[in-house]
């Protein structure tokens, strides 16, 4: 399997097929004498910022912490052993509602979008 081509930047869905983001980062564990093991995927603006460079990464982390509190000062991670299927999308055996990934969308829904008439 080729990680950069086939995994990175792919669409991530949860077990309900809800689109929750792209594979913005891939985390490997370094083990002495053994090959690095993939342990998680990362999602979110902090990881994307870090891909652009050190400074955008730090800046993004600061913004995220300011807006979202401590819970959002680090990128969101989903453990690799939750992978269920790799096809058009990568499906993880999680429920996005139990993670912090959609906190900002929930905030947006509860405070802005949901208050506008006709939002459904």
């Amino acid at each position: 399997m080729k990680l950069l081509r086939d995994i990175l930047d792919k669409q991530v869905v949860d077990r309900e097929q809800v689109k929750i983001g792209k594979v913005d980062g891939l985390v490997a564990e370094l083990r002495p004498g053994e090959p690095p093991k993939i342990v998680a995927v990362e999602l979110g603006s902090i990881t994307l910022g870090r891909r652009l460079g050190e400074r955008p990464g730090r800046w993004m982390a600061r913004v995220a912490a300011r807006l979202g509190g401590k819970r959002h000062a680090e990128p969101h991670r989903i453990a690799w052993n939750k992978v269920r299927d790799i096809g058009v999308d990568i499906e993880f055996d999680i429920d996005v509602r139990e993670t912090a990934i959609f906190d900002w969308q929930d905030w947006l829904r509860d405070h802005v979008i949901g208050r506008i008439p006709g939002a459904g």
Binding site: M1, L3, L4, G25
Partner: peptide, 27 residues
């Protein structure tokens, strides 16, 4: 732990000379 996406596009040096950039990671 280390973030593998950070490796993409990094220059690899051999005795101070570049042999190219990391373009793919196989697993």
């Amino acid at each position: 732990t280390v973030n593998l996406e950070q490796l993409a596009g990094r220059n690899v040096l051999s005795h101070g000379k570049s042999i190219g950039r990391i373009e793919e990671i196989r697993a």
